[in-house]
């Protein structure tokens, strides 16, 4: 139970879901850091899926 409370505290310290959202603003372009992080993770997942060899494939996933 203590471990759960510590883990919750660590996550809450990293990502404050109670306060106002933080936004990246660049001229007319504006995006929350949360949405930006999700999009970057999806792009990373897409690129990794293209280059990481698939187990069992003869030629390294090509």
């Amino acid at each position: 139970m203590d471990a759960i409370i510590v883990a919750q505290g660590l996550i809450a310290a990293l990502v404050d879901l109670n306060g106002n959202g933080s936004y990246l603003t660049w001229g007319w372009f504006s995006i929350s850091y949360g949405n930006l992080a999700v999009i970057l993770v999806m792009v990373a997942l897409f690129l990794l899926a293209l280059v990481v060899p698939f187990p069992g494939s003869k030629d390294g996933g090509e």
């Binding site: 990794l48 899926a49 494939s57 003869k58 996933g61 090509e62």
Partner: peptide, 11 residues
């Protein structure tokens, strides 16, 4: 088919 052996086909 052999070309399906890629992570991108899992999504």
């Amino acid at each position: 088919p052999a070309y399906v052996a890629s992570w991108i086909y899992l999504f």
